[in-house]
Amino acid sequence: MLLSLTGWPVLAADNGCDKDDPNCVQVGTWQFSLAVGLGARSNPVEGGDTIPLVLVPQFSYYGDRFFIDNLDFGYTLYDSPKQSFSLIASPGYDRVFFQRNDLQNFFVESAGLQTSLGLPGTGLGFVDDDLGDEERLNLQVLRERERRVTYLGGLEWSYGFDGAQLQFNYLHEVTGEHHGDEARLALAIPLYSQRWQLAATLGATWKSDRLVSYYYGEKRLYEPGSAVNPFARVSYTRPLNEKWTLRIFGHYQKLGSSIANSPIVEEDDVLTVFVGGVYSF
């Protein structure tokens, strides 16, 4: 009697994955890594503290379709060597500027890393002394109002070609706080890839007026429209051994005018840098 075991296909198409592909992972396993180095997250919101990036944990889990990726989780509907399509849920990241203990300040993703260039604020010239009593009260509310943890749910589509990676997300806030929307588009381009890798990423995030208002606006004081935040990133990666990888990156983001003009925002662009290593457990 012979027992023959065969693998189940993950989805309708053959996903083309095997254990030797660095872009693939064994189903049913956890991955943990820890970034160790020097970097900083600064806060474009007035009075925000700079947050050092010294130890940054990362974790993920991949089931047949379900996955967890730090604070994101999702369900993959289609996975092939060229493209994938998933339903995802992702935390609203702007809260990191208002709550130091937001988990995204510890499990850091690109969108949440900010540091100030020290440029002059570009608010609408809000000076407390020029405000009436009602406006001054509204400004105080804007400064002190709690921004709660929110999650956005929606679609994620990824497409790879010639080593480049294009990704598009469309998300809607599903935790009942502001019902805003967010769209993310990014293109990662390999510049050099041999023993070490150099890559550039260009992208932008669009935030709807409801989302922008929730974090940066207040009725009868500042009622913003939607915002588009473009960004550019350059990263250097060099595997040192089986466990350690050297990582250096710079990330620049321009804040859309409806965010930059908020009376509580002091900077209109951001820069993130990090130098260090990533240890994979």
Partner: peptide
């Protein structure tokens, strides 16, 4: 043993 792609995250 089954394998699948990691989530692609350009950023």
């Amino acid at each position: 043993l089954r394998y699948r792609h990691k989530r692609r995250k350009p950023w």
